[in-house]
Computed example of a mutant assay.
Amino acid sequence: MSAASIALLFAAGGVLVLVGMWFAWRARGRRDAAAAATSPAPGGETIARFPRAAYVSTTAEGAPLERIALPGLRYKGYADVTVRRDGVTIEVTGERPVHIGAARVLGTDETGMRIGKAVERGGLSLLLWRADDSHGTSEAGDDSRILESSFRFTDAAEQRRFAAAIEQILTPAACGAGDRDTHGTTQEDA
């Protein structure tokens, strides 16, 4: 075999891998689109705003290394996070804004690792929320899929301010959901 044929063979293999990755990412996007935040447009009183928070990823509860490809939350980047009385709005740079209604917000937590980022223990803030999976596409076949969106704030004071703002919008139903501790240690931190 000549060097040119070997180069062509490797190039063809590389193109096949890239095409396969593209199809897999599109399939993941279609799978996760049903869980997208479809709450009404935000309009409530602003409790706190966090400009240029580093958005890391959204993962399913208990699967910190599996990114959920939700429209508006697919890619990491800087985000403006606004906590309002009616929910949380996340605007990742270059993506469409995502509004999560207050009734779907379950609380906050802290961790040191998520897909795409590993930092000191408790260095990432998690927003815990219930997916809008009313089409029954979650693995359990119900609408109870819990997601964790992770953020890296500038300092620990911002993390505490974020947790306090989220606590102000929690509904009684969310507080009792699974009797979860909204400020505990996650499995990967234990």
Rank of each mutant, 00 (worst) to 15 (best):
E167V: 00
T137M: 02
A27G: 10
V56W: 06
A11H: 07
G136F: 01
G101K: 02
T182N: 07
Q159T: 12
R49C: 10
A140C: 00
A60W: 11
I169L: 05
F153A: 02
A33K: 07
A7F: 11
E110S: 13
E45G: 08
S149F: 06
R31L: 03
R145H: 02
G20W: 13
A36G: 08
G62Q: 04
G62W: 05
T186E: 10
T171V: 02
A33E: 14
F50W: 10
T89A: 03
V56C: 06
C175N: 10
L124F: 08
P42F: 11
Q168V: 04
A54T: 13
R26D: 11
G122H: 08
E188T: 14
R84N: 11
V92M: 02
I68G: 00
F162W: 09
A7E: 10
S149K: 03
V19S: 07
I115D: 07
T82G: 02
R74E: 15
G14E: 09
G77I: 09
V17Y: 13
D86I: 06
H99Y: 09
Y78D: 15
R145G: 00
R74N: 09
Y75F: 14
T89H: 05
G184F: 05
I6T: 12
A79I: 05
V81M: 04
I68S: 00
F153M: 07
L127W: 06
A3C: 08
L9R: 14
P64R: 03
S5I: 12
S125H: 06
A173P: 01
A164L: 13
R152S: 10
D155G: 01
L147G: 01
G62Y: 06
D132Q: 11
E45Q: 14
A118E: 14
T59N: 10
D133Q: 11
F153I: 01
V119S: 10
T93D: 12
A11K: 04
T185W: 12
G178E: 05
D179Q: 14
R84W: 13
S125G: 05
A173C: 00
R85N: 08
A131Y: 01
A163L: 02
G176D: 15
W129N: 07
I47M: 03
K76D: 13
M1F: 12
E91V: 11
R84E: 10
D142S: 01
D109Y: 06
P172W: 04
L65P: 04
L127R: 04
E66Y: 12
W22Y: 15
P40D: 08
K117M: 14
Y55D: 04
D142Q: 01
A35G: 05
G178D: 05
